[in-house]
């Protein structure tokens, strides 16, 4: 962990309401450049909501979120600029079904990054090689397995040269035998020093890869610390209960 590296993401006192229900309660945390943070917690704990707030797929009602020096909670800030720099991988892959794998990777490069077609395709093919499915470049997503689709989704996000990637339960929709191939790609990314915020139920991955684990429950951060500390001797009862249920 590089204590001195600069802040990539900083959330301060973030709250969000759905009517009377408070989904996030004064959530504060930060992610440094190059850091890998895993957010865990029971469903409905607000972990996906805070992750999606980082690139404003969810709006927040109170507090501030600063990403790469830009204030996401400020409506005047061009959110597209933030999203260009922060990749996102979804539980349901969300590949574009009307485009081939290659086109999925080149679309945003050409439309947003204004790269020319050849350059974009070159980058795309290299990334597909990296995630191990270069041979599927011309196929449509529907012809791919879930694991393959999620690897394409990661490559699509990488094609934008993001400064950080947000993972929203990337393996939850996968059949068990495909989870490994996706986690392997993510581990490689981590080794290369990518800044990652991962919401997941894969405790093995958290233990192995995370610099820091954040445990959330009922819209609050209950506990935060190194994986060794969290998985072996958590401070809070709720964390203990959660771990006993899933491990």
């Amino acid at each position: 962990m590089q204590e001195n590296s600069r802040l990539m993401i900083e959330a301060r006192e973030v709250s969000k309401f759905y009517g009377a229900f408070q989904a996030l309660k004064n959530v504060s945390f930060s992610v440094r450049d190059g850091e890998k943070v895993v957010i865990i917690g029971p469903s409905g704990s607000g972990k996906s909501t805070i992750l999606r707030s980082i690139n404003r797929l969810e709006t927040i009602d109170r507090g501030t979120i600063i990403v790469d020096g830009m204030d996401v909670s400020d409506p005047k800030v061009d959110i597209c600029k933030v999203r260009e720099e922060i990749g996102m991988v979804f539980q349901s892959f969300n590949l574009f079904p009307h485009k081939t794998v290659l086109e999925n990777l080149t679309l945003a490069q050409t439309v947003v990054r204004k790269r020319n077609r050849r350059e974009a395709e070159q980058i795309a093919l290299e990334l597909l090689k990296k995630v191990g499915i270069a041979e599927k470049a011309a196929a449509y997503p529907a012809k791919l397995s879930g694991g393959q689709q999620q690897r394409v989704a990661i490559a699509r996000s990488l094609a934008m040269n993001p400064k950080a990637i947000l993972f929203d339960e990337p393996t939850s929709a996968l059949d068990p035998e495909m989870i490994g191939e996706v986690l392997d790609v993510m581990k490689n990314l981590a080794q290369e020093g990518m800044t990652m915020v991962v919401v997941t139920h894969e405790m093995g991955f958290a233990r192995e890869v995370a610099d820091r684990v954040i445990f959330m429950d009922h819209g609050q951060i209950v506990e935060e610390g190194t994986p060794e500390h969290f998985f072996t001797s958590p401070d809070h009862e709720r964390a203990k209960l959660f771990l006993s249920q899933i491990l």
Partner: peptide
């Protein structure tokens, strides 16, 4: 599906 729009937005598209 909503995820299609979200995926496109998260890539920086308007």
């Amino acid at each position: 599906p909503k995820g299609q729009m979200e995926a496109a937005l998260s890539l920086g598209m308007s």
